[in-house]
């Protein structure tokens, strides 16, 4: 589809078409209720200087945020599943029932977020010697 739009010599008809699609999409947003509440989105948008009386635009923003979070969560889920699969492979079906439970951990989340440019790691913990804290930080960093 990228190719269709970009390499079309006469771009005007497609533009009109996409404008109509955008309008349709915006009007369809009136019936859509995003998971991130409108009030929350409005509050944070007004804080950042965003001013718009149109609820559809606010919903567009909150849907974008929702999509962003959803993508991160699904990535983390994939990480979690692969980790569990590796664990069950090692143990050869010792604890099938227990390992099925999917928990969003910070490790999976940090791995998923690294793709989106968000770098997350634990704070270094220094136990008693100055060298003790360096090892875990290297681990989480890599």
């Amino acid at each position: 589809m990228n190719a269709v739009i970009t390499h079309n010599p006469s771009g005007e008809p497609t533009q009109v078409h996409s404008d109509a699609a955008l309008l349709d999409f915006l009007s369809s947003l009136l019936d859509y209720t995003p998971t991130i509440p409108d009030e929350l989105a409005e509050h944070y948008l007004s804080r950042s200087g965003f001013q718009c009386p149109d609820i559809r635009v606010t919903r567009l923003v909150s849907i974008a945020a929702q999509k962003f979070i959803g993508e991160i969560a699904s990535d983390a889920l994939q990480y979690c599943k692969s980790r569990q699969a590796a664990a069950t492979k090692d143990k050869k079906g010792h604890q099938h029932g227990k390992e099925k439970r999917l928990v969003l951990t910070t490790e999976d989340l940090s791995a998923a977020l690294r793709e989106y440019g968000v770098n997350i790691h634990h704070q270094e913990y220094f136990a008693d010697s100055p060298t003790a804290g360096t090892a875990p930080s290297q681990k989480t960093g890599d």
Partner: peptide, 24 residues
């Protein structure tokens, strides 16, 4: 997901709010 770590939820909430305000 079946369950969430508290720290993971906090992080995700932070990111969501940050994304909202950045977008704004």
């Amino acid at each position: 997901f079946h369950a969430l770590q508290r720290s993971a939820v906090e992080t995700l909430a932070d990111i969501a709010l940050r994304y909202l305000s950045d977008l704004g």
